[in-house]
Design a protein around this nucleic acid. Structure first.
Length: 410
RNA sequence: GGGCAGGUGGCGGAGCGGUCAAUCGCAACAGACUGUAAAUCUGUCGCCCCAGUGGCUACGAAGGUUCGAAUCCUUCCCUGCCCA
């Protein structure tokens, strides 16, 4: 099975240029994917992209990750309904460094002959002057062509419009492809299907100025069965950086995967082969409550992202949170005993342990019967938490069925 | 530069002088059910308190009219469409 077929069965081919399949089967290809440095950490939406590069490398091809230090200054209109806020150059520099460090965990940058590379498009976008850019690159794009791009046309039809800045993005990304073609012999660009327009623009540019054929391959945008955006939860984005999303939360995200999505996720986010994934699909159909498939998914992805120690941490905390484990494995919040000398208002307590964003909300949760101290439902929203609630130096607090906190009193 | 239409809560979108902290949908939160799933049903969904026919802040910004303004007027900022 060549790489294209592998991608196809994993559901990672949405559109591809003619000849990609043959090219990937016959030769050693250099391919790239872009990463937007909009944050200092990658999130699980990017993980899909990272896996694309990692798979590419395993098939003997050479992956290039391009960190968009230049294009990040502009903002890609694809898939965005509104103009983006521009980040400062300093912030982008910080983000580029963070993203680069994370990528190094997934790709092999050492082993020849197909070691991965990371490049920053600020290297060429930051140095080209306006006149050269307009003459040498801009000349190859007609406005009509650009207007036809879905990313542009949709924004034109929206109430917000599109600025000249974002309108130009397409050309910048096309120029990236040309640069990588010239510098690294890169002939394939991959990405999510929202990138198709940008990718084909690059292919066109290479054809026009170098008279060479380049390729594109995009996968479908990941959606959840429930129709929500993949990778977002109530708590926000799931980041790869454990400082932003703990190993436990990361693991839990995968464990809570909808039955209908789990097979797709296994294909995309793990290295498991077809037989293993089919087997897990059967297990899920026969014993859905066991959630064997979800468990395998959560273990595999957590191991890959956070390593064996991170996985162990996540599993210990899971055991503690959902029975059977030791409470000591749940990170405790420390509050001073003096705060409780005269009792702390329950609503203040909830805010202090971040189980409620405001006292009003805390009071509401209590009224609705959603707050528990030491597993006993609290009924008085104007009551207090006192030292009498401390058991073995700790207070257990819980909102709803799943949000738990261990508070250590010192 | 001219004309027209707009800027309302996380999003979409009502309201167009008092009864508006603001209809409704989505998202979210709690409860029931359950498999830490989905679907469904119920409740909630600006902040604060001494919890009330309570206080405060908020309908792009700043002023003004009025007993009273998200709603009227003025200026400014921003967006879309059309014309130049």
């Amino acid at each position: 099975m060549n790489m294209f077929e592998e991608f196809a069965w994993r559901g990672m081919v949405s559109e591809a240029t003619d000849g990609v399949r043959e090219a990937l089967g016959a030769e050693r290809v250099t391919a790239y994917i872009g990463f937007d440095p909009t944050a200092s950490s990658l999130h699980i939406g990017n993980l899909l992209t990272v896996m694309g590069l990692a798979r590419l490398q395993r098939f003997g091809h050479t992956p290039i990750a391009i960190v968009g230090g230049g294009t990040g200054m502009i903002g890609d209109p694809s898939g965005k309904s509104q103009e983006r806020n521009l980040l400062s150059p300093e912030q982008i520099a910080v983000n580029v460094a963070g993203v680069r460090a994370q990528l190094e965990r997934f790709l092999d940058f050492e082993t020849a002959p197909n070691a991965a590379k990371i490049v920053n498009n600020a290297d060429w976008l930051g140095t080209i002057d306006v006149l050269s850019f307009l003459r040498d690159i801009g000349k190859h794009f007609t406005v009509g062509y650009m207007l036809q791009k879905e990313s542009v046309s949709r924004r034109l039809e929206s109430a917000d419009g599109i600025s000249y800045t974002e309108f130009s993005y397409l050309v910048l990304q096309a120029y990236d492809f040309l640069q990588l073609f010239d510098r690294h012999g890169c002939t394939l660009q991959m990405g999510g299907s929202d990138q198709w327009g940008n990718i084909t623009a690059g292919i066109e540019l290479i054809r026009k100025v170098r008279a060479k054929k380049a390729h594109g391959l995009v996968w479908p945008l990941m959606k959840t069965a429930a129709g929500t955006k993949f990778g977002k939860t109530e708590a926000g984005t799931i980041w790869l950086d454990p400082a932003l999303t703990s190993e436990y939360r990361f693991y839990q995200f995968w464990l809570n995967t909808d039955d209908r999505d789990v097979a797709n996720y296994l294909k995309v986010f793990t290295w498991l082969d077809r037989a293993a994934i089919d087997g897990l699909g059967r297990a899920l159909a026969e014993a859905p409550a066991a959630r064997e498939a979800q468990r395998t998914l959560a273990r595999a992805v957590t191991l890959m992202v956070h390593g064996p120690d991170g996985l162990a941490l996540a599993e210990r905390e899971t055991a503690a949170q959902f029975g059977g484990g030791d409470d000591a494995d749940i990170p405790a919040i420390v509050l001073a005993a003096s705060d409780f000398a005269e009792g702390m208002a329950t609503t203040d307590f909830m805010v202090a342990v971040s189980l409620a964003p405001s006292k009003s909300e805390a009071a509401r949760t209590i009224k609705q019967g959603g707050f528990y101290v030491n597993d006993t439902r609290v009924t008085d929203e104007r009551g207090k938490v006192t030292l009498a609630d401390v058991i073995d130096g700790r207070i257990k607090a819980r909102k709803g069925q799943r949000e738990r906190r261990i508070v250590r009193i010192s």
